[in-house]
């Protein structure tokens, strides 16, 4: 199958049922997307497919052939995405393992809702687990990221 990952076309030889997550991690070598549960419970594997957030652990790679797949590695080249800047500014991360997924989920949120309310943030980010408990800073950083995106005219 042919996959469009981060703007590059990859010819992938994988079983039909192989999740996108493991294609990314073990076949393409993009390890920024994380495995946490394998059943869409934790959000660590979140990528964007045609601009929409998707849990790559429950997405057969064959189901997204031909679609535009974006992983944390290409959200920006230089940590300049508003979400990444806000995360750094507000010192969000701890162990960091869930943060690729958190950042991808937050990026999807501010794209869908450029000025999210507290309730919007709770609703969208409840799908991403963090065992270190960075939630309070994530809430603040999503607001900050939205602000930065508006300043950039990003939206």
């Amino acid at each position: 199958m042919k996959l469009d990952i981060n703007g590059r076309s990859h010819e992938i030889d994988a079983p039909d049922d192989m999740p996108l997550l493991w294609v990314l991690r073990d076949l393409v070598g993009l390890t920024g997307t994380k495995y946490g549960c394998g059943m869409a419970q934790c959000g660590a594997c979140t990528v964007h497919v045609d601009g929409q957030p998707m849990r790559s652990c429950v997405t057969p790679a064959s189901a997204v052939a031909g679609q535009k797949i974006t992983t944390i590695e290409s959200l920006s080249d230089d940590a300049s995405h508003p979400v990444q800047r806000a995360w750094i500014e507000l010192d969000v991360v701890q162990c960091g393992y869930c943060q690729s997924g958190q950042v991808m989920a937050a990026a999807a949120l501010i794209r869908a809702k450029p000025k999210p309310s507290d309730a919007d943030i709770d609703a969208a980010m409840a799908g991403n687990l963090c065992r270190c408990g960075t939630y309070q800073r994530i809430r603040a950083a999503v607001h900050r990221a939205a602000e930065l995106a508006r300043e950039d005219g990003h939206a």
Partner: peptide
């Protein structure tokens, strides 16, 4: 679904194998 967490985040086009 909520903005940023659409149903399609987890629910694909078909049941999984």
């Amino acid at each position: 679904g909520a903005p940023g967490l659409p149903c399609s985040t987890c629910h694909g086009q078909a049941n999984l194998p």
